[in-house]
């Protein structure tokens, strides 16, 4: 379990994080949302033990996070980077060993990942010879190769085409099902709805929205319904608003007066809409 308790961090006079608290339960996928410059990167760096908070604490399984725990964490920063002159093979082994793996373990695990991503033939290539998408795959492998218990992914889908985006999405789900907790920071709201159980939305260094994704969507609903009915043999689709105090059955009765209802469904706001509404 990851706990962030009342964390503050400022750089000079600029306050980056202002009493931020959140809890990420084991085995979940947690979304960290917010506009650019909201303080997400600072929070992510605190979670990784790169930066220390001015006050408050960051705990992983009850222990204050520092580099001693780095072997348990996998981090994919938003700005990707690898040693350009190193070969794929050397690069992956070097970073895996720095995460505490033995050379033997690292080699074995690396071959499995290369097979899974079908990139075994790139091993001897230098990073600078790879396309952006190819380098991203290598970077993803270096992030997860040591089987971290906590995976922090900052914009993991950027730079991938739709096919590879789907592949990475499936990998995240698979790794999560194997027991790894995932923190996902992204602007891709579709992925948030698809993957995350819970989210925190940060704006100007403060948490402005927090909780279960479905609950948040429910709370932000605007009593709108999508209705499809047959009127005089014609198929009609419309958006209707429920009056205050009206029950669903009363609404259905009212709607069924001039035709037969075939679809009746509540319109929940998308995370995209909630994001824009909250931040503005």
């Amino acid at each position: 379990m990851l706990e962030i308790n009342d964390v503050r961090k400022s750089f000079g006079t600029k306050v980056a994080l202002d009493s931020v608290s959140l809890t990420v339960n084991d085995g979940t996928i947690y979304g960290l949302l917010g506009p650019n410059g909201a303080g997400k990167t600072t929070l992510i760096r605190i979670i990784n033990g790169i930066t220390a908070p001015d006050s408050g604490e960051a705990l992983l399984n009850g222990k204050r996070i520092d580099l001693e725990q780095s072997a348990q964490i996998g981090y994919l920063p938003e700005e990707r980077g690898l040693y350009k002159k190193m070969t794929v093979y050397e690069q992956v082994l070097y970073l895996a060993q720095l995460k505490g793996m033995s050379l033997l373990q690292a080699r074995e695990e690396m071959q499995r990942w290369f097979k899974r991503f079908e990139i075994t033939s790139w091993q001897k290539k230098k990073i600078e010879e790879l396309s952006k998408g190819m380098a991203q795959k290598v970077q993803f492998i270096t992030t997860v190769i040591h089987r971290p218990r906590l995976l922090v992914l900052d914009e993991p889908f950027s730079g991938f085409d739709p096919v590879n985006t789907e592949m990475i999405r499936q990998e995240i789900i698979r790794i999560n099902q194997e027991g790894t907790t995932v923190i996902l920071s992204t602007h891709n709201m579709e992925s948030v709805e698809m993957l995350c159980q819970e989210i925190s939305l940060i704006n100007h260094g403060k948490i402005v929205l927090q909780g279960n994704v479905q609950t948040i969507r429910q709370e932000n609903r605007s009593n709108l319904y999508r209705v499809v009915k047959i009127v005089n043999g014609q198929r009609i689709e419309e958006k209707v608003e429920k009056k205050t105090g009206e029950s669903n059955n009363e609404l259905l009765n009212r709607l069924s007066l001039d035709g037969e209802i075939i679809v009746f469904e509540e319109i929940l706001p998308t995370m995209n809409e909630i994001f824009i509404k909250t931040v503005q």
């Binding site: 033990g49 580099l67 780095s70 964490i73 981090y75 980077g81 690898l82 350009k84 720095l98 270096t142």
Partner: peptide, 17 residues
């Protein structure tokens, strides 16, 4: 400077001091 400009730095200091 190269580690910094190639952005490997952040990955590195997430693993070592």
């Amino acid at each position: 400077a190269q580690e910094k400009s190639s952005r490997i730095m952040e990955v590195m200091i997430a693993s070592v001091r």
